[in-house]
Amino acid sequence: MKSITPLRAALAGAALLIGAWPAAAETLVKIGFASPLSGPQAHYGKDNENAARLAVDELNARKLQVGGQPVRFQLLAEDDQADPRIGTQVAQRFVDSGVKAVLGHFNSGVSIPAARIYAAAGVPQLSVSTNPAYTRQGYRTAFRLVGSDSQVGAALGHFAVQTLKAASIVVIDDRTAYGQGIADEFAKAVQASGGKIARREYTNDKASDFSAILTAVKPLRPQVIFYGGADAQAAPMAKQMKRLGLDARLLGGDMLQTPTFLSLAGDSAGGHFAGIPGGQLNDRPAGKAFRQRYQARFKQDVVRLGPQFYDGMMMVAAAMQQAGSVEPARFMPALTKLSYAGVSTDFSFDAKGDLNKAAVTISEVKNGQWTTRAVMQ
């Protein structure tokens, strides 16, 4: 029998101890996510959540380390119901839960009041809300992942006058912070381009019958009707325009350029326009690859702003790695200075938290599909 010396026994024992030594424990990093996950805007919200979860899962698969410490991200998803009151309650729950960053909210009317809660807690908020007021409140925690209404509305206003040569333009909005905000910016740009707003009308974000409004504006013979609101209302408006014999182009913001508008409007969708902040996914190699991963995972196409939520999560992780910390006070300065090539666009922020450079893509419905008509800077 082979004898075991004291030294050999000691080395064997040490090897056993080393083999049994636990790996460094992961740091759990909570990230808040909020969008409307129920109601008529749930298709936007679910798209946003899918993309955010895809980013979290990809980061966790990489076994990411921050400051030499393994981290695992956990997405806390909440339905804010596109309601400012619910949204502020969600914001407070996120803060109480110890989230390190928030992806959301979707609606400007929710993001604007929620921003105060995140600012008081020092938690960065990365939102796709477009109303200019979101980043004009003076909160250094607010970051906008898309162009603002000032940029999108202005591009659409110039397009209506300079490209479509519309002499009679009607503006309708749903009185939400988003709808009214983008309609205001559109109207300003029309006037700045030498055009004229023939009439301004108002509805709400639950309406589906616009016959009275459209009948009232028909004598004005509008060439363009701008709608500030969502696809669920724009689609029946397009149908009713056709039924009433209104020979006008419907224009709107990013909430119109969706598969939902196409399916709900049917053969009434053709010839209408939408302006979205940023470029087209398929124009960017990383964007095209993202779309393929998204489709493979969720068995559906991207709806609208999910890619920006994906990019937002990736930027939070990149800023944490640069700062070597998951604490907002440490990584937020890195986020402020970050230059990041995302799947949706190239990101860098100005002092207010807005994008330094935001392209606007204007698309037209042709042959039942959204087709790029122009990209404006």
Rank of each mutant, 00 (worst) to 15 (best):
R221P: 01
A166R: 14
A207I: 10
Q180K: 13
I213T: 05
L264N: 11
A232I: 14
P222I: 10
R200L: 06
G253H: 10
M241P: 01
I225T: 06
V224I: 15
D247Q: 14
I182Y: 09
G194H: 09
Q257W: 03
F226M: 03
F186K: 05
G181D: 01
F210M: 02
G252E: 05
A167I: 00
S211M: 07
P259D: 03
E201S: 06
G228D: 04
Y227W: 06
A232R: 12
G229P: 11
A166L: 10
R221Q: 15
K196R: 15
Y202T: 03
L246T: 08
S263P: 01
S193Q: 09
T215H: 05
F210V: 00
R249E: 00
Q240M: 06
K218V: 10
Q191Y: 02
A189S: 13
V224D: 04
T176P: 01
I225C: 05
S208G: 08
T203M: 04
G266C: 07
T176N: 02
V217P: 04
R200T: 15
E185P: 00
Y178M: 01
Q233F: 10
D209S: 09
A232V: 14
K206A: 12
G179K: 12
Q257C: 11
G195L: 11
G252V: 09
R199V: 05
M255P: 01
G252F: 09
Q257S: 04
P222W: 14
K206N: 09
K206T: 14
V171K: 09
A207N: 13
A234T: 13
K242R: 15
T163P: 02
K196H: 15
G194P: 08
F210H: 02
V171P: 00
G245T: 12
S263M: 08
L164G: 05
S211N: 13
V190R: 09
S268C: 11
L246P: 04
